[in-house]
Amino acid sequence: MLYIKCPHCGMRSQNEFSYGGDATIKRPELGKEISDQDWDNFVYNRKSLRGKHWELWQHISGCRQWIKVERDTATHEIFKTLKANEEISL
């Protein structure tokens, strides 16, 4: 079971969190014209690579905050966690 550092609550076991997928996907701005390709990239297309992966988790049985987690998809090692409003530096 993963051990995730919630930036608000500290180290917590994975069963307090729910997963939210790729954290680097940015929702297009509302009301802005956007190509089919860009929209598909937002809704469907995912890199999902092996290795370091920035992803979202929500501390659903804790502070209910969405957080950003950098985790290795091959080893499951977690390198870093950020609050929702902190920017990922790739």
């Binding site: 929702r27 929500q58 969405w66």
Partner: peptide, 13 residues
């Protein structure tokens, strides 16, 4: 609820 929190915290803070 999670859906609303997602947009409030991440998309439209």
């Amino acid at each position: 609820l999670s859906h609303l929190e997602y947009y409030l915290q991440l998309v439209w803070p």
